[in-house]
Amino acid sequence: MNNNLTVIERDGQLLVDSREVKDMLNIRHSDLLEKIDGYLSVLHQNGKFRSDQFFIESSYQAGTGKPYKHYYLTRKGCDMVANKMNGTKGVLFTAHYVTQFEEMEKELKQPQTELEVLAATVNNMVQQEKRITVIENEQKRIFDLIGLNPSNWRKEINKIIRLIAKESGLSHSAVWSESYKTLETRGKCNLRRRLDNKRNNMKKEGASKTKVEKANFMDIIDEDPKLTEIFLAIVKDMAVKYKVTLKKETA
């Protein structure tokens, strides 16, 4: 086995040449290309993976000047090739490419000049500032939600439910259903049974058919302070889960 395997850096990716891989594996280049073409065919059919995360097609010229195909393999590509091999060859190839990739990664992480040290420091500061900004925005968003006014809770809950549906891509009915099911679990209650009882009592008290039919789960929640408190907490949790903020509402 040829132990020579050069890892290069291109556009932020670490790559190895299929021509060196075939030497290391002691197989014909055409055979290796055929295997890679097969892997790519499966990846393309699946559609969930970008082929360039594994193999990048390129070409080179031989002595005649005629172009020939070869591939650059990413670390994932090497993993795929190695996983399809058995025995000593697969083990040694894995050991070599893992070692070479790790050495190249360490080399790239080490600043070589004062300018590179300064650039790395500035980059770290920028990234830290971005992380701080994200955290602050998240905290503010949660504080906005926690600040819901309980006296006007039905209007604000409707607003948040619309936002959750918009951000999540779920239907309004699906979001409401999730909130009600969670309430029944946390509040240990049966909203349907309570609503049926309420409607029966309204009929006995002489309420109109229209008024009886308009009664809903929100009325049940509104009549029970404990359920109201639990439901507010549930919708706040859902808003955080689906990453919405009250300021996104424009209508």
Rank of each mutant, 00 (worst) to 15 (best):
residue 132 I to H: 05
residue 141 R to L: 01
residue 47 G to E: 10
residue 177 S to W: 04
residue 114 E to H: 09
residue 37 D to V: 10
residue 183 L to Q: 09
residue 176 W to Q: 11
residue 80 M to V: 12
residue 193 R to F: 02
residue 226 K to F: 08
residue 2 N to P: 01
residue 56 I to T: 08
residue 30 S to L: 12
residue 154 R to V: 12
residue 73 L to Q: 09
residue 183 L to C: 10
residue 179 S to P: 00
residue 145 L to H: 06
residue 177 S to R: 11
residue 126 V to T: 08
residue 201 N to I: 07
residue 19 R to Y: 04
residue 134 V to C: 00
residue 71 Y to F: 15
residue 137 N to L: 00
residue 112 Q to W: 01
residue 148 L to I: 15
residue 126 V to H: 07
residue 5 L to Q: 10
residue 29 H to T: 03
residue 90 G to V: 11
residue 151 S to I: 02
residue 241 K to G: 01
residue 15 L to T: 10
residue 59 S to G: 02
residue 140 K to S: 02
residue 186 R to K: 11
residue 180 Y to T: 01
residue 193 R to N: 11
residue 67 P to C: 09
residue 17 D to Y: 04
residue 61 Q to V: 00
residue 109 K to D: 12
residue 124 N to F: 13
residue 58 S to F: 02
residue 215 A to M: 13
residue 210 T to A: 15
residue 23 D to V: 01
residue 20 E to R: 03
residue 228 T to D: 05
residue 119 A to P: 03
residue 19 R to W: 03
residue 66 K to H: 08
residue 235 V to C: 06
residue 26 N to W: 02
residue 28 R to V: 06
residue 139 Q to T: 02
residue 57 E to K: 13
residue 242 Y to D: 04
residue 122 V to R: 14
residue 234 I to Y: 08
residue 65 G to D: 05
residue 33 L to G: 03
residue 58 S to V: 01
residue 23 D to Y: 09
residue 161 I to G: 02
residue 205 E to T: 00
residue 241 K to T: 07
residue 217 F to E: 07
residue 156 E to C: 01
residue 92 L to D: 12
residue 104 M to H: 04
residue 126 V to Q: 13
residue 124 N to K: 15
residue 113 T to M: 10
residue 189 C to W: 04
residue 126 V to M: 13
residue 100 Q to Y: 03
residue 183 L to I: 10
residue 133 T to P: 00
residue 175 V to Q: 09
residue 142 I to H: 00
residue 88 T to E: 15
residue 211 K to E: 15
residue 222 D to P: 00
residue 189 C to K: 02
residue 125 M to K: 14
residue 147 G to F: 01
residue 76 K to R: 13
residue 97 Y to G: 11
residue 183 L to Y: 04
residue 171 S to I: 06
residue 211 K to L: 12
residue 203 K to S: 14
residue 243 K to P: 00
residue 22 K to C: 15
residue 114 E to W: 13
residue 4 N to K: 14
residue 51 S to Q: 10
residue 228 T to R: 15
residue 119 A to I: 03
residue 101 F to D: 03
residue 60 Y to M: 06
residue 68 Y to G: 04
residue 31 D to Q: 07
residue 101 F to I: 09
residue 16 V to N: 07
residue 162 R to K: 14
residue 140 K to A: 03
residue 130 K to L: 11
residue 194 R to K: 14
residue 232 L to P: 02
residue 101 F to R: 03
residue 152 N to Q: 12
residue 170 L to K: 15
residue 222 D to M: 08
residue 133 T to V: 11
residue 130 K to P: 00
residue 75 R to Y: 10
residue 175 V to H: 06
